[in-house]
Amino acid sequence: MEYFSEGTGLLVWILALILIACGIYFGMRYSKMRDYSGQAIIPLIMIVLSLVLWVKTLGFPTEDAGPALIPLLWIFWLILLSVVILFFCFTGRIDKDPKRGRIFFLGLGVGLVVVYYFAMDYLGYFISSFLFLATAMYMLSYRKPFTILLVGTGWVLFSYLIFYKLLYIQLPLGLIEDFI
């Protein structure tokens, strides 16, 4: 098994586990168990995560009360309890999946945060924060331009004075590096 703990072997191991987990999930999704398929996602992820970390422990030094002891203990219990929850999902003895919310809207929100994260490196913290706040407020249907401008500018000033000047946090400056 140690082949799977490093390099290509590890990649194959991870891909195989993900494929099996996806197979179980989609198997449930297109069967009578579809109402519980969402509930199966977290136990499946936990099992995959546990098995990936378990294979990594094979490379740890073997000694009494060594570095692998506690991770193996948690992995054992996590797999056991996840399997029990998965069993409840298969038998329908768990709450049904919650109603599908505005997943696209959520995706937009998370996407905006991710764009904000990457923009911080290029545009700098202050410009990207202003743009993020204005876009997020607009996305959440806020339509008062003056307030949007005020909140964005206010936050930039606040973070500049408190974090940059008072707490000496070296925020990424990006485009305005030469001006500050």
């Binding site: 706040l133 407020m137 973070s159």
Partner: peptide
Amino acid sequence: PESVMYPLILA
């Protein structure tokens, strides 16, 4: 408004 509060929480 929540549409102002939540972006600020993220910031």
